[in-house]
Every structure is written in structure tokens, then in C-alpha cells.
Amino acid sequence: MLTVSHFSKSYSGGKRAVDDLSFTAPRGTITGFIGHNGAGKSTTLRCAAGILDFSEGEIRIGGHDVRTEPVAAKSITAFLPDNPDLYDFMTGIQYLNFIADIYSIPSAERTRRVEKYAGAFDILSVLGSQIGSYSHGMKQKLALVSALIREPQLLMLDELFVGLDPQASHVMKGFLREVCDRGGSVLFSTHILEVAQKLCDRIVIIRGGQLVEEGFTAEVVGNSDLESVFLELAEEGGGDA
């Protein structure tokens, strides 16, 4: 579903955030994207989502190159940054309707999806209030609902579980599996290694913008646990992973 090939990204000033990174997030799988702060996870996700431009390498979503066919690639993708700022001047339902308009979701279908996802996250009753009046957690839930109502083929989430209460985290895990069951793919970055190990079918670990490890979770972890593997890899890299 997502193919990243020899992707590199440098910021102005010459800082190389990602260097020759290649990995895939196949259909029907949940892929955990792991690395220390500053490893290049957010940069990679933002480039794949079309938020940042890049000049080296190739990123394809559903076969569409995000640089040359951005509209086609974005049409089948939903991305949420780690701290999603939403339109505070809109009400929750106006925002969801706005997103549904952008993604051309038919009227009856969008109503059904909003009811399903907003109901599951228990924010249906507050959708008439302005987003500016929402708490951080509620904004997070609204952002997740806005991503899920698109029923995307690729769902990319940066630091998914930050700010979510245990109930919402549980609900979200179910929906991630639902995306995969529909033939889609999920790629999310996280620092919570226990969750990644339990939830993810595949793991991609990066350090200093470069790929360190990629594969099925069971293969990567082996008889150990993800935290030990991650720390071991960090030590191999001189502690700067």
C-alpha cells in the first residue's frame, strides 16, 4: 500500500533528517514506526502525507507517486499529525462535514460513518459545540473520527496514543484492525513499545534518519521483547538512535 524507496529529506541549512530510507507498509497490516525523538519519523510521515516536499527518492501510495499524483495519493489516505490543530471556529460536526465534502463522501454514507465513529468515541453529543471549546483529548478524538470517516486505504498516524484515554485507545485499536480487514494499511509512529509489540504486524525501526530494522514483529522481536530489541539497536548506534 505504502512504498518508500530511497527517500531522503534535508531541511534548509543542510540538516539531513532522513537518509536513503526504504520500507513498505503492505495491505492488511498494521505497521509500527519506531525511533527516538528526532529520528525522522514525523518527517517521513509528513512527506508521505504531502505536507512536506522532498527531492530525493520516491513515495508511492496505492501505486500513486505522492509528488507527481498528489491528489490521487491523498484521496485514499488519511493522516493525523501528533498534535492536530483543527479549525477552532467550526463546530465539530461542521469540521466532519467539511472533511466529508473534501473527500466527496455521499450524504447518507457520511451520516452513517459520523454516527458510527463519533458514537464509538463518545463525542456525538458535543459535535454541536465549537472546536475551540473542546479539551485536548476531545480534539484528538474528533481528529481521529475525521480520519476514520474517510475509510482510507492508508491510515498514517503520528504518535497515535498520546492524549487518548484508555477507553478511546481500546476503541481505536479495534478501528485500526478494521482498516486492515478492509484491505487497507495502517502506519503509525509511537514511543509506547508495549502497544506497538501487541498491536503491530510489522515493525520499522529508524535511527538518525536511516533504516535499522524492518520486518514482521515476531521476526524482529524473536524471543525477546521490543523494548530490549530497540535499546540494543540504540546501543549499537552509539546511543544516538
Partner: peptide, 12 residues
């Protein structure tokens, strides 16, 4: 926060 929102059919 107002908690009295009732979802009706959304227009596209």
C-alpha cells in the same frame, strides 16, 4: 460545552 447535539442527515 453543549451536549445536546442530535445527528440528522448531513448534506454534501
Amino acid at each position: 460545552l453543549r451536549k445536546d447535539f442530535r445527528l440528522t442527515r448531513l448534506s454534501a
